[in-house]
Simulated scan of single mutants.
Amino acid sequence: MAAFAMPTVEFAPALTRHVACPKQQVRADTLGAALEAAFRAAPALQGYVLDEQGAVRKHVAVFLNGDMLPRDTALARAVAAEDRVMVIQALTGG
């Protein structure tokens, strides 16, 4: 059986004001699996973060250890026990 890391996943206040979800350590080997595990604590949050195809929404940014990840490859990124995932609502101007 494969060993899983326990990265920390946190959602920014702009998201948790809609659906409460505390910072948590989750059991996962990829960032996508880490988010999936975090959504178990707050299933309604998934719709704010992922679109209908399961991809990161256009106005959401995912950071791994402070580095913003490209939306199209973020979910496949491997995670380690000491990793910190932060999900925020990205702001766009106009």
Rank of each mutant, 00 (worst) to 15 (best):
residue 66 G to S: 04
residue 36 E to S: 14
residue 30 T to V: 02
residue 31 L to S: 05
residue 8 T to I: 06
residue 54 G to D: 02
residue 26 V to A: 00
residue 41 A to Q: 12
residue 56 V to T: 03
residue 18 H to E: 15
residue 71 R to A: 06
residue 88 I to P: 02
residue 82 E to Y: 02
residue 93 G to I: 01
residue 37 A to E: 10
residue 74 A to I: 14
residue 31 L to M: 04
residue 12 A to S: 14
residue 47 G to L: 04
residue 8 T to Q: 14
residue 60 V to Y: 10
residue 57 R to P: 11
residue 23 K to C: 01
residue 31 L to E: 00
residue 72 D to I: 00
residue 56 V to F: 07
residue 89 Q to M: 12
residue 53 Q to F: 07
residue 65 N to A: 00
residue 77 R to C: 06
residue 93 G to D: 05
residue 85 V to M: 01
residue 38 A to R: 10
residue 80 A to R: 15
residue 68 M to E: 15
residue 61 A to K: 11
residue 84 R to L: 08
residue 80 A to K: 12
residue 72 D to Y: 01
residue 34 A to T: 11
residue 34 A to M: 06
residue 67 D to K: 14
residue 49 V to E: 03
residue 16 T to Q: 14
residue 13 P to G: 06
residue 58 K to M: 08
residue 63 F to R: 09
residue 92 T to E: 00
residue 18 H to P: 01
residue 65 N to I: 04
residue 38 A to L: 07
residue 15 L to H: 09
residue 65 N to P: 04
residue 46 Q to M: 08
residue 77 R to W: 01
residue 52 E to H: 07
residue 7 P to R: 06
residue 12 A to H: 15
residue 1 M to W: 10
residue 39 F to Y: 09
residue 76 A to H: 08
residue 73 T to G: 04
residue 71 R to M: 01
residue 89 Q to T: 15
residue 77 R to D: 00
residue 44 A to D: 14
residue 47 G to M: 06
residue 7 P to Y: 01
residue 45 L to I: 04
residue 83 D to L: 05
residue 61 A to Y: 13
residue 37 A to Y: 12
residue 5 A to P: 10
residue 6 M to K: 12
residue 1 M to F: 10
residue 74 A to C: 04
residue 58 K to V: 13
residue 88 I to E: 00
residue 2 A to G: 07
residue 27 R to I: 09
residue 10 E to W: 10
residue 29 D to K: 14
residue 24 Q to M: 11
residue 35 L to C: 03
residue 6 M to T: 15
residue 41 A to L: 08
residue 56 V to Y: 08
residue 64 L to V: 01
residue 51 D to C: 05
residue 25 Q to A: 00
residue 84 R to Y: 04
residue 42 A to R: 11
residue 74 A to R: 11
residue 78 A to V: 00
residue 78 A to E: 14
residue 20 A to R: 12
residue 89 Q to C: 08
residue 79 V to Y: 08
residue 7 P to A: 03
residue 7 P to E: 02
residue 54 G to H: 04
residue 36 E to C: 02
residue 38 A to V: 03
residue 22 P to M: 06
residue 10 E to R: 15
residue 70 P to H: 07
residue 18 H to D: 10
residue 7 P to F: 00
residue 54 G to Q: 06
residue 43 P to A: 01
residue 19 V to G: 11
residue 9 V to W: 05
residue 3 A to Q: 14
residue 89 Q to L: 09
residue 4 F to D: 07
residue 82 E to K: 12
residue 75 L to N: 00
residue 47 G to P: 05
residue 55 A to N: 14
residue 23 K to A: 13
residue 50 L to K: 07
residue 9 V to P: 02
residue 40 R to A: 04
residue 53 Q to S: 13
residue 94 G to I: 08
residue 36 E to F: 02
residue 46 Q to K: 15
residue 25 Q to C: 01
residue 13 P to L: 04
residue 28 A to K: 08
residue 53 Q to G: 05
residue 80 A to W: 04
residue 45 L to W: 13
residue 85 V to N: 03
residue 3 A to V: 13
residue 54 G to F: 01
residue 62 V to P: 08
residue 29 D to Y: 05
residue 50 L to D: 07
residue 40 R to L: 11
